[in-house]
């Protein structure tokens, strides 16, 4: 089972339909079960059942999750593969000692891969859908795998199976989610 975490300001908000459901559809198409839970309701019970976790994005104006980073402290001790999308990457960055700065990208942007990784290998550069007003900086425990002209686009934790992507792979780059889920199942993402 893949655990999808909704980072929107309220459980059951309109943002769920836009940012969680499309990811669930991709996971289902891969033949996996998906369970979604709001970020304030994540418990060991959910995490213990999951093979991997995806932290989903939020509407542009929705940054409430950044005021509640305690709700993401489980990231420090988990051994599960985790993929954070946009807001999810910002949460990961904050938990692992990075900082957040204003940075607006809305629309298609060129992303250039600069690191070696089983998900992004041989990707070179690709066009991706961006929808963010913030970006990650001053990363400590996270390695940069890809960038755009404006900000860091992909990170991976140096000691855990945790990824963050600033773009929205559910819109034009479903392969990112497909490879993450597939490699998680095969234990193909090494620590």
């Amino acid at each position: 089972m893949i655990l999808l975490i909704d980072l929107c300001f309220r459980n059951g908000s309109l943002g769920f339909d836009e940012f969680v459901r499309p990811v669930a559809r991709i996971v289902h198409h891969l033949g996996n079960d998906a369970i979604s839970v709001h970020f304030r309701s994540v418990t060991d019970h959910f995490l213990s059942q999951a093979e991997a976790v995806i932290l989903c994005g939020t509407p542009l104006a929705d940054t409430a999750f950044l005021a509640e980073t305690g709700a993401f402290s489980w990231l420090k001790k988990t051994r599960l593969p985790v993929l954070g999308i946009c807001a999810g990457m910002e949460a990961i960055c904050t938990i692992f000692g990075g900082t957040i700065r204003p940075c607006i990208e809305i629309g298609m942007t060129e992303v250039t891969v600069i690191g070696n990784d089983p998900i992004f290998q041989e990707s070179g550069s690709f066009s991706a859908y961006e929808l963010h007003t913030l970006a990650c900086n001053n990363l400590r425990d996270l390695e940069v795998l890809a960038v755009s002209n404006q900000c860091i686009q992909v990170v991976r934790h140096q000691g855990k199976k945790i990824y963050g992507v600033m773009f929205h792979p559910e819109v034009r780059n479903e392969w990112v989610i497909e490879r993450f889920v597939t490699l998680s199942g095969e234990e193909g993402i090494s620590q």
Partner: peptide, 9 residues
Amino acid sequence: WCFNPLWHT
């Protein structure tokens, strides 16, 4: 705020 509730439905 901007919501697109049918996005990629």
